[in-house]
Simulated assay, not measured.
Amino acid sequence: MTENAPRAVPVPAEPPRGTRRRRTPRLAATSGVLTYVFIALAVLLPVPYMLQLPGPVFNTLGDYQGDPMISVSGAKTYPTDGRIDMLTVAVSGGPGRDTFASQALGALLNGKETVIPTEAYYPLDTTRDDVTASNAVEMSSSQDVAVAAAMEQLDKPYSVHLLVDDVVAKSPAEGKLRKGDRLMSVNGKKLDSDPDAAQIMSATVRESNTVDVTIDRDGKSEDISLTPGDIDGNKAIGVTMKQDFEFPVDVKFNVDGVGGPSAGTMFALAIIDELTPGAMTGGKHVAGTGEITPDGTVGPIGGARQKVAAATEKGATLFLSPADNCAEVLSAADQSKITVARIDTLDDAQTTVEQYAAGNTSDLPKCPADGADNNEKGQ
Protein backbone atom coordinates (compact mmCIF):
# COMPACT_ATOMS: atom_id res chain seq x y z
CA MET A 1 0.00 0.00 0.00
CA THR A 2 1.38 3.43 -0.93
CA GLU A 3 1.58 6.32 1.45
CA ASN A 4 -1.00 8.41 -0.49
CA ALA A 5 -3.62 5.69 -0.81
CA PRO A 6 -7.05 6.69 0.65
CA ARG A 7 -7.75 5.39 4.11
CA ALA A 8 -10.71 3.06 4.56
CA VAL A 9 -13.46 4.47 6.80
CA PRO A 10 -15.35 1.79 8.77
CA VAL A 11 -19.14 1.75 8.13
CA PRO A 12 -21.36 0.89 11.12
CA ALA A 13 -22.92 -2.49 10.68
CA GLU A 14 -26.73 -2.66 10.24
CA PRO A 15 -28.43 -4.01 13.38
CA PRO A 16 -29.69 -7.54 13.04
CA ARG A 17 -33.23 -7.81 11.68
CA GLY A 18 -35.87 -7.75 14.44
CA THR A 19 -33.87 -5.45 16.72
CA ARG A 20 -34.62 -1.76 17.35
CA ARG A 21 -32.37 1.17 17.72
CA ARG A 22 -32.55 2.57 21.21
CA ARG A 23 -33.74 6.12 21.57
CA THR A 24 -31.40 8.35 23.37
CA PRO A 25 -32.49 9.10 26.93
CA ARG A 26 -33.00 12.78 26.06
CA LEU A 27 -35.49 12.01 23.23
CA ALA A 28 -37.49 9.61 25.39
CA ALA A 29 -37.66 12.13 28.22
CA THR A 30 -38.84 14.90 25.86
CA SER A 31 -41.58 12.68 24.43
CA GLY A 32 -42.79 11.79 27.92
CA VAL A 33 -42.94 15.44 28.97
CA LEU A 34 -44.97 16.37 25.88
CA THR A 35 -47.43 13.57 26.61
CA TYR A 36 -47.98 14.86 30.12
CA VAL A 37 -48.37 18.41 28.79
CA PHE A 38 -51.09 17.32 26.35
CA ILE A 39 -52.91 15.40 29.10
CA ALA A 40 -52.72 18.40 31.41
CA LEU A 41 -54.14 20.63 28.69
CA ALA A 42 -57.03 18.23 28.12
CA VAL A 43 -57.81 18.23 31.84
CA LEU A 44 -57.29 21.92 32.56
CA LEU A 45 -58.32 23.65 29.30
CA PRO A 46 -61.58 25.58 29.83
CA VAL A 47 -64.23 25.12 27.13
CA PRO A 48 -67.29 27.34 26.41
CA TYR A 49 -69.80 24.76 27.52
CA MET A 50 -71.77 24.01 30.64
CA LEU A 51 -72.95 20.66 31.97
CA GLN A 52 -76.41 19.79 33.24
CA LEU A 53 -76.31 17.13 35.97
CA PRO A 54 -78.99 15.51 38.17
CA GLY A 55 -79.60 17.86 41.09
CA PRO A 56 -81.11 17.58 44.58
CA VAL A 57 -84.63 16.17 45.01
CA PHE A 58 -87.19 17.70 47.41
CA ASN A 59 -90.42 16.15 48.66
CA THR A 60 -92.98 18.97 48.47
CA LEU A 61 -95.15 17.12 51.00
CA GLY A 62 -92.31 16.77 53.48
CA ASP A 63 -89.94 18.88 55.53
CA TYR A 64 -86.84 20.78 54.53
CA GLN A 65 -84.27 21.64 57.19
CA GLY A 66 -86.78 20.90 59.94
CA ASP A 67 -89.74 22.90 58.58
CA PRO A 68 -92.51 22.00 56.10
CA MET A 69 -91.49 22.69 52.53
CA ILE A 70 -95.00 24.03 51.86
CA SER A 71 -97.37 25.16 54.60
CA VAL A 72 -100.94 26.35 54.00
CA SER A 73 -102.99 28.41 56.43
CA GLY A 74 -106.27 30.32 56.27
CA ALA A 75 -108.30 27.27 55.21
CA LYS A 76 -108.95 23.73 56.40
CA THR A 77 -106.08 21.40 55.53
CA TYR A 78 -105.86 17.62 55.58
CA PRO A 79 -103.10 15.14 56.43
CA THR A 80 -101.49 13.44 53.46
CA ASP A 81 -98.99 10.69 52.67
CA GLY A 82 -96.51 9.59 50.00
CA ARG A 83 -94.20 11.87 48.06
CA ILE A 84 -94.59 14.48 45.34
CA ASP A 85 -91.00 15.23 44.43
CA MET A 86 -89.81 18.43 42.78
CA LEU A 87 -86.65 17.79 40.76
CA THR A 88 -83.72 20.08 40.10
CA VAL A 89 -80.80 20.27 37.71
CA ALA A 90 -77.29 21.07 38.88
CA VAL A 91 -75.17 23.09 36.47
CA SER A 92 -71.40 22.92 36.13
CA GLY A 93 -69.88 25.86 34.28
CA GLY A 94 -71.76 28.81 32.87
CA PRO A 95 -71.08 32.50 33.59
CA GLY A 96 -68.29 32.92 36.13
CA ARG A 97 -67.43 29.22 36.27
CA ASP A 98 -65.13 27.08 34.14
CA THR A 99 -65.89 23.77 32.49
CA PHE A 100 -62.88 21.73 31.39
CA ALA A 101 -62.51 19.58 28.30
CA SER A 102 -62.18 16.38 30.33
CA GLN A 103 -65.45 17.13 32.16
CA ALA A 104 -67.29 17.70 28.90
CA LEU A 105 -65.95 14.45 27.44
CA GLY A 106 -66.91 12.52 30.55
CA ALA A 107 -70.42 13.98 30.46
CA LEU A 108 -70.88 12.88 26.84
CA LEU A 109 -69.95 9.34 27.80
CA ASN A 110 -72.00 8.77 30.97
CA GLY A 111 -75.46 9.33 29.46
CA LYS A 112 -76.90 11.20 32.47
CA GLU A 113 -75.41 14.61 31.80
CA THR A 114 -75.95 17.05 28.95
CA VAL A 115 -73.32 19.29 27.38
CA ILE A 116 -74.66 22.56 26.00
CA PRO A 117 -72.97 25.72 24.67
CA THR A 118 -73.00 28.43 27.32
CA GLU A 119 -74.03 31.03 24.72
CA ALA A 120 -77.19 29.04 23.98
CA TYR A 121 -78.44 30.00 27.45
CA TYR A 122 -76.69 33.22 28.42
CA PRO A 123 -75.47 36.33 26.56
CA LEU A 124 -71.70 36.82 26.68
CA ASP A 125 -71.94 39.69 29.20
CA THR A 126 -73.99 37.68 31.74
CA THR A 127 -72.39 37.45 35.20
CA ARG A 128 -72.80 34.85 37.94
CA ASP A 129 -74.71 37.43 40.00
CA ASP A 130 -77.09 37.95 37.06
CA VAL A 131 -77.80 34.21 36.93
CA THR A 132 -78.39 33.97 40.68
CA ALA A 133 -80.74 36.96 40.70
CA SER A 134 -82.69 35.70 37.69
CA ASN A 135 -83.12 32.23 39.21
CA ALA A 136 -84.38 33.71 42.47
CA VAL A 137 -86.94 35.89 40.68
CA GLU A 138 -88.17 32.96 38.59
CA MET A 139 -88.54 30.76 41.68
CA SER A 140 -90.50 33.43 43.56
CA SER A 141 -92.75 34.02 40.57
CA SER A 142 -93.32 30.29 40.06
CA GLN A 143 -94.51 29.98 43.66
CA ASP A 144 -97.15 32.71 43.23
CA VAL A 145 -98.27 31.25 39.91
CA ALA A 146 -98.45 27.74 41.44
CA VAL A 147 -100.77 29.02 44.15
CA ALA A 148 -102.90 30.75 41.49
CA ALA A 149 -103.09 27.54 39.44
CA ALA A 150 -104.07 25.55 42.53
CA MET A 151 -106.80 28.08 43.36
CA GLU A 152 -108.11 27.83 39.78
CA GLN A 153 -108.15 24.04 40.03
CA LEU A 154 -110.02 24.19 43.36
CA ASP A 155 -112.44 26.93 42.15
CA LYS A 156 -111.26 29.29 44.87
CA PRO A 157 -111.46 32.93 43.70
CA TYR A 158 -108.41 35.18 43.95
CA SER A 159 -107.36 38.55 42.57
CA VAL A 160 -104.25 39.63 40.69
CA HIS A 161 -102.89 43.13 40.10
CA LEU A 162 -100.27 44.33 37.65
CA LEU A 163 -97.67 46.61 39.24
CA VAL A 164 -94.80 48.69 37.89
CA ASP A 165 -91.69 46.92 39.17
CA ASP A 166 -89.08 49.34 37.86
CA VAL A 167 -88.68 52.33 35.53
CA VAL A 168 -85.87 52.55 32.97
CA ALA A 169 -83.79 55.71 33.20
CA LYS A 170 -84.28 58.24 30.36
CA SER A 171 -87.29 56.31 29.03
CA PRO A 172 -90.78 57.67 28.18
CA ALA A 173 -92.02 56.41 31.56
CA GLU A 174 -89.37 58.19 33.63
CA GLY A 175 -90.96 60.92 35.73
CA LYS A 176 -94.48 59.72 34.92
CA LEU A 177 -94.70 56.19 36.31
CA ARG A 178 -93.24 54.96 39.61
CA LYS A 179 -92.33 51.63 41.11
CA GLY A 180 -95.43 50.25 42.84
CA ASP A 181 -97.98 51.97 40.59
CA ARG A 182 -100.95 49.65 40.03
CA LEU A 183 -101.84 49.49 36.33
CA MET A 184 -105.64 49.56 36.05
CA SER A 185 -106.19 49.94 32.29
CA VAL A 186 -104.39 50.73 29.05
CA ASN A 187 -106.08 52.41 26.04
CA GLY A 188 -109.45 51.45 27.50
CA LYS A 189 -108.53 47.78 28.08
CA LYS A 190 -108.97 46.58 31.65
CA LEU A 191 -105.81 45.23 33.26
CA ASP A 192 -106.66 44.87 36.92
CA SER A 193 -107.61 41.34 38.01
CA ASP A 194 -106.77 39.93 34.57
CA PRO A 195 -104.13 37.15 34.75
CA ASP A 196 -103.08 38.09 31.19
CA ALA A 197 -102.63 41.78 32.03
CA ALA A 198 -98.87 41.83 31.38
CA GLN A 199 -99.34 40.38 27.89
CA ILE A 200 -102.17 42.84 27.16
CA MET A 201 -100.03 45.76 28.29
CA SER A 202 -97.01 44.68 26.23
CA ALA A 203 -99.07 44.06 23.07
CA THR A 204 -100.83 47.42 23.39
CA VAL A 205 -97.52 49.26 23.68
CA ARG A 206 -96.15 47.51 20.57
CA GLU A 207 -99.26 48.30 18.53
CA SER A 208 -99.90 51.91 19.61
CA ASN A 209 -98.36 55.31 18.93
CA THR A 210 -99.84 56.69 22.15
CA VAL A 211 -100.41 54.74 25.35
CA ASP A 212 -102.99 56.06 27.82
CA VAL A 213 -102.63 54.34 31.18
CA THR A 214 -104.89 54.60 34.22
CA ILE A 215 -103.02 53.85 37.42
CA ASP A 216 -103.78 53.58 41.12
CA ARG A 217 -101.10 55.35 43.15
CA ASP A 218 -101.47 55.34 46.92
CA GLY A 219 -105.22 54.81 46.59
CA LYS A 220 -105.74 57.63 44.07
CA SER A 221 -106.56 57.17 40.38
CA GLU A 222 -104.45 58.99 37.78
CA ASP A 223 -104.47 59.07 33.97
CA ILE A 224 -101.08 59.20 32.25
CA SER A 225 -100.29 59.50 28.54
CA LEU A 226 -97.05 58.06 27.14
CA THR A 227 -95.41 57.93 23.72
CA PRO A 228 -93.48 54.66 23.23
CA GLY A 229 -89.86 54.95 22.16
CA ASP A 230 -87.05 52.73 20.94
CA ILE A 231 -85.36 50.92 23.85
CA ASP A 232 -82.68 48.41 22.89
CA GLY A 233 -84.30 47.98 19.48
CA ASN A 234 -87.81 47.42 20.86
CA LYS A 235 -90.84 49.68 20.96
CA ALA A 236 -91.41 50.28 24.68
CA ILE A 237 -92.35 52.80 27.36
CA GLY A 238 -89.55 51.74 29.72
CA VAL A 239 -91.07 49.80 32.60
CA THR A 240 -90.77 46.29 33.97
CA MET A 241 -93.90 44.80 35.50
CA LYS A 242 -94.81 42.19 38.07
CA GLN A 243 -97.99 40.47 39.18
CA ASP A 244 -99.24 40.92 42.73
CA PHE A 245 -101.65 38.18 43.85
CA GLU A 246 -104.23 38.21 46.63
CA PHE A 247 -105.21 34.66 47.61
CA PRO A 248 -107.90 33.33 49.97
CA VAL A 249 -105.21 31.23 51.69
CA ASP A 250 -101.69 31.93 52.87
CA VAL A 251 -99.03 29.63 51.40
CA LYS A 252 -95.44 29.70 52.62
CA PHE A 253 -92.59 28.02 50.76
CA ASN A 254 -89.42 26.83 52.44
CA VAL A 255 -87.05 26.45 49.50
CA ASP A 256 -83.62 28.01 49.90
CA GLY A 257 -80.90 27.91 47.28
CA VAL A 258 -83.14 26.60 44.49
CA GLY A 259 -84.01 28.74 41.48
CA GLY A 260 -85.98 28.65 38.28
CA PRO A 261 -89.66 28.10 37.40
CA SER A 262 -89.77 24.34 36.76
CA ALA A 263 -91.19 23.29 40.15
CA GLY A 264 -94.49 25.10 39.57
CA THR A 265 -96.57 22.03 38.72
CA MET A 266 -95.31 20.02 41.69
CA PHE A 267 -95.92 22.97 44.02
CA ALA A 268 -99.50 23.26 42.76
CA LEU A 269 -100.15 19.53 43.24
CA ALA A 270 -98.84 19.67 46.80
CA ILE A 271 -101.08 22.65 47.64
CA ILE A 272 -104.12 20.86 46.21
CA ASP A 273 -103.22 17.74 48.18
CA GLU A 274 -103.10 19.71 51.45
CA LEU A 275 -106.45 21.41 50.77
CA THR A 276 -108.38 18.25 49.80
CA PRO A 277 -109.24 15.16 51.89
CA GLY A 278 -107.12 12.03 51.49
CA ALA A 279 -103.65 11.45 50.11
CA MET A 280 -103.55 12.25 46.40
CA THR A 281 -100.69 9.78 45.86
CA GLY A 282 -102.23 6.97 47.90
CA GLY A 283 -98.89 6.77 49.71
CA LYS A 284 -96.94 6.22 46.48
CA HIS A 285 -93.79 7.99 45.32
CA VAL A 286 -94.43 10.46 42.50
CA ALA A 287 -91.96 12.84 40.87
CA GLY A 288 -92.29 15.29 38.04
CA THR A 289 -91.60 18.69 36.60
CA GLY A 290 -93.14 21.47 34.56
CA GLU A 291 -93.53 25.23 34.51
CA ILE A 292 -97.14 26.31 35.04
CA THR A 293 -99.38 29.26 34.23
CA PRO A 294 -102.24 30.59 36.38
CA ASP A 295 -104.80 28.82 34.18
CA GLY A 296 -103.04 25.48 34.80
CA THR A 297 -101.21 25.03 31.49
CA VAL A 298 -98.03 22.98 31.98
CA GLY A 299 -95.00 24.11 29.98
CA PRO A 300 -91.66 22.46 29.13
CA ILE A 301 -88.51 22.77 31.20
CA GLY A 302 -84.77 22.23 30.75
CA GLY A 303 -82.77 19.25 31.96
CA ALA A 304 -85.47 16.59 31.56
CA ARG A 305 -82.91 13.77 31.21
CA GLN A 306 -81.21 14.76 34.43
CA LYS A 307 -84.55 14.93 36.24
CA VAL A 308 -85.45 11.39 35.17
CA ALA A 309 -82.10 10.21 36.55
CA ALA A 310 -82.68 12.05 39.84
CA ALA A 311 -86.22 10.67 40.18
CA THR A 312 -85.22 7.05 39.61
CA GLU A 313 -82.25 7.34 41.95
CA LYS A 314 -84.61 8.48 44.74
CA GLY A 315 -87.00 5.59 44.06
CA ALA A 316 -89.93 7.39 42.41
CA THR A 317 -92.23 5.07 40.47
CA LEU A 318 -94.20 7.66 38.43
CA PHE A 319 -92.70 10.55 36.45
CA LEU A 320 -94.92 13.39 35.23
CA SER A 321 -93.49 14.85 32.02
CA PRO A 322 -94.65 18.02 30.25
CA ALA A 323 -95.80 17.08 26.76
CA ASP A 324 -93.04 19.06 25.04
CA ASN A 325 -90.38 17.25 27.06
CA CYS A 326 -91.55 13.77 26.07
CA ALA A 327 -88.86 13.11 23.46
CA GLU A 328 -86.09 14.10 25.87
CA VAL A 329 -87.57 12.05 28.72
CA LEU A 330 -87.84 8.94 26.56
CA SER A 331 -84.18 9.33 25.57
CA ALA A 332 -83.05 9.43 29.21
CA ALA A 333 -80.80 6.59 30.31
CA ASP A 334 -83.08 5.53 33.21
CA GLN A 335 -86.56 6.10 31.75
CA SER A 336 -87.24 2.34 31.50
CA LYS A 337 -87.03 2.12 35.31
CA ILE A 338 -90.04 4.39 35.88
CA THR A 339 -93.60 4.84 34.58
CA VAL A 340 -93.72 8.01 32.48
CA ALA A 341 -96.98 9.93 32.02
CA ARG A 342 -97.49 12.95 29.77
CA ILE A 343 -99.22 16.00 31.24
CA ASP A 344 -100.54 19.09 29.43
CA THR A 345 -102.40 20.74 32.30
CA LEU A 346 -102.58 20.74 36.09
CA ASP A 347 -105.87 18.88 35.81
CA ASP A 348 -104.04 16.18 33.79
CA ALA A 349 -101.40 15.97 36.50
CA GLN A 350 -103.89 15.62 39.35
CA THR A 351 -106.02 13.07 37.49
CA THR A 352 -102.95 11.03 36.53
CA VAL A 353 -101.64 10.91 40.11
CA GLU A 354 -105.06 9.90 41.43
CA GLN A 355 -105.41 7.16 38.80
CA TYR A 356 -101.95 5.87 39.60
CA ALA A 357 -102.72 5.90 43.33
CA ALA A 358 -105.83 3.80 42.65
CA GLY A 359 -103.76 1.24 40.73
CA ASN A 360 -105.12 2.23 37.31
CA THR A 361 -101.98 2.36 35.19
CA SER A 362 -103.42 1.12 31.88
CA ASP A 363 -105.10 4.39 30.93
CA LEU A 364 -102.42 6.91 31.86
CA PRO A 365 -101.58 9.46 29.11
CA LYS A 366 -98.25 8.40 27.71
CA CYS A 367 -95.42 10.03 25.84
CA PRO A 368 -95.57 8.91 22.19
CA ALA A 369 -92.44 6.96 21.30
CA ASP A 370 -92.73 7.56 17.55
CA GLY A 371 -94.39 10.93 17.15
CA ALA A 372 -97.89 9.43 17.30
CA ASP A 373 -100.96 11.34 18.40
CA ASN A 374 -100.26 12.99 21.76
CA ASN A 375 -103.72 11.98 22.96
CA GLU A 376 -102.89 8.29 22.72
CA LYS A 377 -103.19 6.51 26.06
CA GLY A 378 -101.76 3.46 27.71
CA GLN A 379 -98.38 2.73 29.27
Rank of each mutant, 00 (worst) to 15 (best):
P277M: 06
M69H: 11
A169P: 00
T240W: 05
Q103M: 11
E246R: 08
P228I: 14
P46D: 07
Q199K: 10
L177I: 02
S142Y: 06
C326I: 06
A40D: 02
N254I: 02
Y158C: 00
V205A: 04
S171T: 01
A101M: 15
E354C: 00
P6G: 09
G238D: 02
D334V: 00
L108F: 12
K156N: 04
L364I: 03
T293N: 07
R342D: 02
R83H: 09
G66A: 05
K190E: 13
P25Y: 04
A75K: 12
L45P: 03
D324Q: 13
P368W: 08
R22I: 00
F245E: 10
T352E: 07
G106D: 12
V164F: 04
C367Q: 13
F253S: 11
E222L: 14
G260Y: 03
G257C: 06
T351R: 15
S202Q: 15
E152N: 15
R305C: 04
Q335M: 05
D165H: 13
G18E: 11
T361G: 01
G303H: 05
D196F: 12
A327F: 15
F100V: 13
V186F: 06
R7I: 15
P228C: 13
Y356S: 10
Q379L: 11
A323D: 14
M1C: 10
N375W: 03
A29R: 15
V164S: 04
D144S: 14
A268S: 15
I84P: 03
T240F: 07
V72D: 02
I215Q: 06
N59M: 05
N135T: 02
G55C: 09
A75R: 11
D85Y: 03
V89F: 07
Q243V: 01
P228E: 11
V89Y: 08
R7P: 02
Y158T: 02
E291R: 05
A146P: 01
A149G: 10
K314A: 02
A13Q: 14
V164G: 03
E328G: 01
T265K: 04
S225T: 15
G296W: 05
A40H: 06
G180M: 08
A8S: 12
P228H: 10
S31M: 11
D250L: 13
D192T: 14
I39Y: 10
P195W: 10
G259I: 04
V286L: 07
V168K: 07
V145H: 02
D196V: 10
G32F: 14
T210K: 11
G238C: 04
P277K: 15
V353P: 05
S73Y: 09
T24Q: 12
G94S: 13
P6L: 11
D67M: 09
T88W: 05
A357E: 06
T361K: 10
F319V: 04
Y356E: 03
G32K: 03
P368K: 02
D98R: 15
L191F: 11
F267W: 07
A198G: 10
E328R: 00
T214F: 00
E376V: 09
V205K: 05
D370T: 14
P25D: 08
P12Y: 07
D232Y: 14
P157V: 08
T88D: 00
A263D: 05
G62S: 08
K242N: 12
G74D: 08
A333P: 00
C367W: 13
A40N: 04
T351K: 15
I70S: 12
I272C: 12
A198L: 08
L330Y: 06
M86Q: 05
D363M: 11
D125H: 00
V33Y: 03
D67F: 01
Q143G: 06
L318R: 10
K189E: 12
V239E: 03
